Computed example of a mutant assay.
Amino acid sequence: MPRFTANLSMLFTEVELIDRFAAAREHGFNAIEIQFPYELGAETIKRKLAEQGLQLVLFNVPADDLLQGGEGLACVPEKQDQFREALALAVDYAKELRPAAINVLPGRCLDPARYADYLSTFKQNLCLAADAFSPLGVKTVFEAINSLDMPGFIIDTGAKMLAVLDELKRRDIFLQYDIYHMLRMGENPAAFIAEHAKRIGHIQFADCPGRGQPGTGHADWAALFSAIDQSGYDGWTGAEYKPSGATSTTLGWLNHYDHR
């Protein structure tokens, strides 16, 4: 079965972020990811990882106002200087924490007439990120987010992700494949992962609809986890869901599918 990480931005939110490292370890995780770790200093995170014997797998470059309904950062032509500042901060954290991968969120375009400019800006910034992270041994990843939950997101399908990779032709940029978002778009994640495993740098998951833990929606998790296992994908698989109750009560899937 896949190697699972706990996304500390979504799981164990019953306690403060600094206490979620211990909660993840207590409940059987050996690795974690954090969407935006910047409320804690890099040295503090490094200490908490060491205390709990955890590996940090992933975090995101700051994305400005994306989660508040704005366009975000990486694709907005007028925000390129701000993106460089955000990238510099992520590099500082990467130097201290050495995650497996760092995600560059593409962002939204709220004016369809400017879509081409926004996509071009994102590709330029994605390459800047790869130039910065690759010397540190860190993969640069980017993801598609479904346009039902986040209208205007410039990359919302597997095909659009692949098109970016095909155009850039870089060996240090990979996909972050989020099973929930692609289920929302009506795609077949098992088939996509089986075909494109070597181009995927990180996988995340939640059930669909609702974005809850496995078993709360219609996804076939035995088939999905088996597909990941058989695909040759050698990265981590992140639990990034909205727990339906206390996180500890939603981890039955981990006990069932994690057979380390």
Rank of each mutant, 00 (worst) to 15 (best):
T5N: 06
L8Y: 01
F12H: 09
E14H: 13
V15F: 01
I18T: 05
D19V: 06
F21R: 05
A23L: 04
A24G: 02
G28K: 06
G28S: 04
N30Q: 06
A31G: 03
Q35G: 07
P37N: 06
L40S: 08
E43F: 09
I45M: 08
G53I: 01
F59V: 00
N60R: 08
N60C: 14
V61P: 03
P62T: 14
D65S: 15
L67K: 08
L67S: 08
Q68L: 15
E78M: 13
E78Y: 11
Q80R: 09
F83R: 12
E85M: 04
A86S: 06
A86I: 02
L97R: 03
N103D: 13
L105V: 11
L105G: 09
L110Q: 08
Y115R: 12
L119K: 15
T121F: 14
A132G: 12
S134E: 07
S134P: 01
P135A: 13
P135D: 09
E143A: 12
A144P: 04
L148P: 00
T157E: 00
T157W: 00
A159I: 04
M161K: 09
L162F: 07
D166F: 14
K169L: 08
I173E: 11
M182Y: 05
L183G: 02
P189A: 05
E195W: 02
R199G: 00
I200G: 00
I200M: 03
I200S: 01
Q204I: 04
F205Q: 03
D207A: 00
C208K: 00
R211C: 02
G215A: 04
H218P: 00
A219P: 08
W221Q: 08
L224G: 03
L224N: 05
A227V: 01
I228D: 05
D234V: 03
E240N: 01
E240P: 00
Y241E: 10
T247M: 13
S248W: 04
S248R: 03
